[in-house]
């Protein structure tokens, strides 16, 4: 009698343990699925100031009634022996107008080094409207020892950018791509 009761309890326990292990497994899957989910949300909302990473189409419309001030900053991340700076601190553009700015990078080490530039736009709400047509950040860049290179960057701000956005800051961080 006692053992019969015990047997059914063991069975019940085992079933519940299996269910709970399923819950644990589900949580692990959930954790890893958050990675693509997060990127998707960032792309849709422009959260974190992520801008496009492949070339955009040119726009045809120009809204000459307003100005947007675009500022540029640059950072060289630790581990990359480069100098890197924008050649203009800011430009004024009409929404829709295509603009070219240049950045200069110099490899100050005595070996070939490849770097990858990562853009980030502030305020983040403006990032879906900031369109890059040509950018050195679309692929990794290689500099020979002591080489200096000037990179053009072609962009426009789309005409549907919200009215309250008057200034945006584009920041580039250059990383070493050894890994």
């Amino acid at each position: 009698m006692e053992t019969l009761k015990q047997k059914s309890l063991n069975k019940k326990n085992k079933k519940l343990v299996l269910k709970l292990m399923g819950l644990v497994l589900g949580s692990i899957i959930f954790a890893f699925s958050l990675v693509p989910l997060y990127n998707l949300i960032c792309n849709v909302t422009g959260l974190n100031g992520k801008t496009n990473s492949v070339a955009d189409q040119t726009s045809l419309k120009i809204d000459a009634s307003r100005w947007i001030k675009v500022e540029f900053t640059s950072t060289v991340m630790p581990g990359l022996g480069w100098n890197f700076y924008p050649n203009q601190s800011s430009v004024k553009v009409h929404p829709g107008e295509i603009m070219v700015v240049t950045f200069t990078a110099k490899n100050i080490t005595n070996e070939v080094v490849a770097g990858q530039a990562i853009p980030s736009l502030s305020p983040g709400q403006a990032s879906p409207y900031f369109k890059k047509i040509e950018c050195f950040c679309f692929q990794r860049q290689e500099l020979k020892a002591g080489e200096t290179k000037t990179f053009p960057m072609r962009f426009y701000v789309s005409t549907d950018v919200p009215q309250d956005i008057k200034t945006v800051t584009l920041s580039y961080a250059f990383y070493n791509t050894v890994k």
Partner: peptide, 22 residues
């Protein structure tokens, strides 16, 4: 060599904060 949180490889350090605080 993965780049979950490494911006240079297309990852995002803020993602770690979301995962950690979740």
């Amino acid at each position: 060599g993965t780049h979950f949180f490494d911006a240079a490889g297309g990852g995002d350090p803020i993602l770690f904060q979301h995962l950690f605080w979740f």
